[in-house]
């Protein structure tokens, strides 16, 4: 038995750089593989077949073929990337960055692409894409 076995480690960490990063100053580095959020990357290729919505384990994706609309519910999405792997046209992708925190569930809940844009700010499609 020995006393204070940890003292060496404690002394070492006292005089070395902290193991944690100063978060807002130093941003976390993500890896190319990181599954942050599911995004519609190539809307032009999308045929609105609806495979992603039918196979989604969390029922987070809704696809409307007639209105050419693809929506994802960010609160329900579990970022498993099953849809990314299933998409026959490879138009979905898993982005590295996590979804930004949101204060309400209203329009940020959906990313709407195609001809119909978000009802709240129908004027600018680009804005709604950035928000999401």
């Amino acid at each position: 038995m020995a006393f204070n076995v940890i003292s060496k480690t404690v002394m070492k960490s006292l005089f070395s750089k902290p193991a944690t990063a100063m978060y807002p100053v130093i941003k976390n580095e993500f890896y190319p593989n990181t599954r942050g959020s599911i995004e519609m990357a190539h809307i032009d290729n999308c045929t609105f077949c609806g495979i992603c919505s039918k196979r989604c384990p969390a029922d987070a994706i809704a696809v409307d073929r007639a209105e050419k609309r693809w929506e994802i519910d960010r609160i329900r999405c579990i970022a498993c990337s099953f849809c990314v792997q299933l998409c026959p046209k490879n138009c979905l992708s898993a982005e590295r960055q996590y979804t930004a925190p949101m204060t309400d569930k209203s329009h940020k809940l959906f990313t709407i692409y195609g001809q119909v844009v978000s009802q709240e700010d129908a004027s600018q499609e680009d804005v709604s894409q950035e928000d999401a």
Binding site: A19, Y31, N33, T34, R35, A79, S81, F82, A94
Partner: peptide, 18 residues
């Protein structure tokens, strides 16, 4: 934490690998 970094690098998730 180092192990979790290996997970994130190889699978894309730190805890849930999918």
């Amino acid at each position: 934490e180092k192990i979790l970094d290996i997970f994130e690098e190889t699978t894309g998730g730190r805890v849930i690998f999918s």
